[in-house]
Design a protein around this nucleic acid. Sequence first.
DNA 1: CGGGACTTTGAGGTAGATCAAAAAGTGTGG
DNA 2: CCACACTTTTTGATCTACCTCAAAGTCCCG
Lengths: 243, 243
Amino acid sequence: MTSSHGLTLWLKRLRLRSALDDIDAAAILALPGQVQRISGSRDFVKMGERVDHACLIVSGLAGRFSQTLGGDRQITAVHIPGDMADLHSVVLSRAATALQGLGDVTIYRVPHDAIKALAMASPALAEAFWRDCVVDAAVLSEWQLVNGRLPALAKVAHLICEMVCRLTAGGQKSTMPLDFPLTQIQLGDATSLTSVHVNRMLRELREQGAVEMKDRQLRVHDWSRLVAIAEFDPAYLHLGKGD
Amino acid sequence: MTSSHGLTLWLKRLRLRSALDDIDAAAILALPGQVQRISGSRDFVKMGERVDHACLIVSGLAGRFSQTLGGDRQITAVHIPGDMADLHSVVLSRAATALQGLGDVTIYRVPHDAIKALAMASPALAEAFWRDCVVDAAVLSEWQLVNGRLPALAKVAHLICEMVCRLTAGGQKSTMPLDFPLTQIQLGDATSLTSVHVNRMLRELREQGAVEMKDRQLRVHDWSRLVAIAEFDPAYLHLGKGD
DNA sequence: CGGGACTTTGAGGTAGATCAAAAAGTGTGG
DNA sequence: CCACACTTTTTGATCTACCTCAAAGTCCCG
């Protein structure tokens, strides 16, 4: 796994949504940066900090965190390998949220200057970056609907559906079991539930024969039931070829 | 109020966050489009529809709506005059959410082609559009924290704080009372509460001497108390001069 | 003057929180 | 390989913030 492996993943992600010619592709793959290994659950971007690098997730998962004055935590996004987790920081360098590893993570820090230079030089890349940020916002919007209006069982199911779709994008949902390192506490942080209640909802999902989580592994037994519980429609993820 | 009045507002908004030279500014003001008046509470962009125009709010308020299969509605964003409500549709033309007037609205529909042409021609404008979409996402993220983790009283207070800041941006908070056409039902749709509970929270805010809503008018009596209840920090709105 | 949308208040129910504690897993150092 | 500390999972019992249902009151407009 060379340092450019992350860039390959990111390029693939960008090309899911934007047409890029070979010159643009080569420019992405040539982006400078430095690999950093983050050991479990440490912030690698701190809230309020001014940053001059964007963080590409190479392996592991990362969460975007906010918190209330009372210390309640909210995960507003989960990032998987191939995500440029804070691409938005290129145009808004003050971090409004923290980024933290969910388990061990490897990131590749790319200087804003380099990304900005690409955007200046290539309108197609500028548009691709813009589009990826917009998809990011679409996910936030979907979470708001789910977290605001669906019951707890559906919230948990929905997050699982989303993660399965993203982690297996293009691939088979049948490569079960799937690595799924999120703890119940973290699932609670993402769904605005307590970990106790997440636990009960997971039991319910298991008892309904939909899905099973054990030892950081996820086993989907009945995808269509899970989707029905979650009211899940993957369109908002924009993982398809089209628009 | 000519048709270009909306464009003037939008330019002002863009310049809050991005440096634009006179050529870019002139290009914005020259954007073609057509004025449309929407009578109360009708969708002017429908969920799932493919759009080729972006909607600039000229007067009135508009809401971005999603809903569950059960028909529960969630407002994921409120747009005020000067907002290009679905600028994101320029790079993602399938509308993932509906746009609806909150009361009567006047919009100015600008063809995607025209906006795209500007972004191609001017990297500064491309960046400005990108940045505005990112600020939009920052607001979604903040709503997620607030709606997920704060008690009902704070949720309502927070939405009021945000609207006051945005509607009076740069201006005085002392120009009270402020026009505030949101109904309690709509406040509930935005905060994931029932209108009944919103009503009780507004009473509580009134009894605490923080704020009063009467006849579509808002009167803030104790801004600092309101801010304290809401745990409100306006940084995420990026209305300041800086970053 | 009548009808529709919004606001306000009351009474009672419930989904999910809170509190508490045991069980299971994970890692570290001796 | 075991002992110890720490984190995560699981379960039970209780509590409460907010919802639901219902109805009256108010405002607005034709």
